[in-house]
Computed example of a mutant assay.
Amino acid sequence: MSDSEVSEAVAQPRTAAGALFFDETGRVLLVKPTYKPGWEIPGGYMHPGETPSEAAAREVQEELGITPPIGRLLVADWAPHPTEGDKLLFVFDGGTLSPEWLAKINLDGVEIGEYAFHGVDQLDAHLIPRLARRVHAACTARTTAATAYLENGVPLT
């Protein structure tokens, strides 16, 4: 390796992972954080040494108090934030929550104050645009059995 290669800056994105859950009618589960306005999907930043799927499972357990199986990767999104820098965000398929799983939801009350299911056609009204694009792409990836790679929530064509 040359000296110029050693001193070259490399991206060090903040990485986060979440899971997309559905009810039996196909609505998406969203959570409302207590520390900021708006809705999100269950998830959060990864810990050192943690894989994206492990982070998604941990965040779901912390926020919702449940441990349903986390399925396949739906979306990987390179989404730099104007003030927070580079981000790499993963969304996994949490599947359809059965009535038994729904009955076990126990919100942490610290980070998450409430949850609700919303139709896919209502997502834009509840999510910030960059997250709405990511969740729409994840819903499409789920129905087409694909995995989407996005940049700022937009698929590359």
Results as ranks from 00 to 15, higher is better:
41 I>D: 06
39 W>M: 07
82 P>R: 03
59 E>L: 14
100 E>M: 04
93 D>K: 02
134 R>C: 04
22 F>L: 15
84 E>H: 12
137 A>N: 12
123 L>D: 04
47 H>M: 14
114 E>S: 12
110 V>T: 15
79 A>T: 15
41 I>N: 05
104 K>W: 00
143 T>S: 15
147 T>Y: 11
46 M>D: 00
102 L>M: 10
59 E>Q: 11
151 E>L: 06
18 G>Y: 07
62 E>D: 09
66 I>L: 01
13 P>N: 01
154 V>P: 09
26 G>C: 05
77 D>L: 03
64 L>M: 07
3 D>Q: 13
93 D>G: 09
2 S>Q: 12
108 D>T: 04
86 D>A: 11
50 E>V: 04
1 M>V: 10
65 G>E: 09
31 V>H: 11
3 D>R: 10
56 A>G: 07
26 G>L: 08
7 S>C: 05
137 A>S: 14
44 G>H: 01
44 G>F: 02
63 E>K: 11
150 L>H: 13
42 P>Y: 04
16 A>E: 06
21 F>G: 05
87 K>D: 02
156 L>K: 04
35 Y>K: 14
36 K>D: 06
117 F>W: 01
34 T>D: 08
142 R>K: 15
87 K>I: 06
102 L>D: 00
119 G>Q: 01
31 V>C: 14
45 Y>W: 00
45 Y>T: 05
86 D>C: 05
44 G>L: 02
96 T>S: 12
60 V>A: 05
84 E>Y: 11
24 E>Q: 14
134 R>S: 06
128 I>K: 08
129 P>T: 00
67 T>A: 15
122 Q>T: 02
134 R>D: 03
89 L>P: 07
29 L>Q: 09
124 D>S: 13
129 P>K: 00
85 G>L: 01
8 E>L: 12
5 E>K: 06
42 P>A: 02
94 G>W: 12
1 M>L: 14
71 G>W: 10
136 H>A: 08
68 P>C: 01
90 F>D: 10
77 D>P: 11
27 R>M: 00
154 V>L: 11
108 D>P: 03
131 L>T: 04
133 R>N: 15
74 L>S: 09
40 E>I: 11
63 E>W: 09
86 D>H: 02
154 V>T: 15
15 T>S: 11
70 I>F: 05
24 E>F: 06
149 Y>K: 03
157 T>Y: 04
129 P>R: 00
20 L>D: 00
64 L>H: 08
66 I>Q: 03
68 P>R: 01
128 I>P: 06
151 E>Q: 13
99 P>Q: 07
95 G>V: 07
93 D>Q: 08
111 E>Y: 08
73 L>K: 12
61 Q>H: 15
94 G>L: 09
145 A>E: 13
123 L>E: 00
19 A>V: 03
49 G>I: 11
123 L>M: 05
69 P>Y: 01
138 A>Y: 14
54 E>T: 07
101 W>F: 13
148 A>P: 12
93 D>V: 04
99 P>A: 03
9 A>W: 08
6 V>N: 14
